[in-house]
Amino acid sequence: MVFYIAGGDFSNAGKASSQIKKALKQLNVNAKSIKQIVVAVYEAEVNVAAHAWEGKVTALIGENDIQVIVSDRGPGIEDIQQAMQPGFSTASKEVREMGFGAGMGLSNIEKNTNEMNIESQVGEGTTLKFRCFYS
């Protein structure tokens, strides 16, 4: 499953997580795992809408796990460790007023996944990969 997200387009944030949720339900994946996966995918979608120029969410749904790759063209992340810290945010005032950009996104993703990896080139973009095993 592949989904495209345009930078700044919050109206479509949640489309990928919603479709992935439906697909996992059809596969009878347990409710707890679905909940965790949905949180991670949603946060990743919001990150693209809030920070990048454009991005793509690819979900590889397997029998025992799901792998999600979120790659964007965007400003990149200068210091990934700092970005991972709860509360750290570079979101704009507008984004914060909507209730996003509280600096909880990446830590929410980490908490809800089994493996997570971020690669980023400043000025070019970021690729986030994560994997969840169905419990």
Binding site: F10, S11, A13, G14, S18, K35, V39, Y42, E43, V46, M98, G99, F100, A102, M104, G105, N108, K111
Partner: peptide, 27 residues
């Protein structure tokens, strides 16, 4: 804070908020 709700709210709860945009319903 939407990420807070995303991370901590549970099924069948009522969410009380002042946010009025459509991402509220997505969450």
């Amino acid at each position: 804070l939407l990420s807070d709700v995303m991370g901590n709210a549970a099924e069948d709860e009522v969410w009380i908020t002042l946010q009025t945009h459509q991402n509220v319903m997505a969450i």
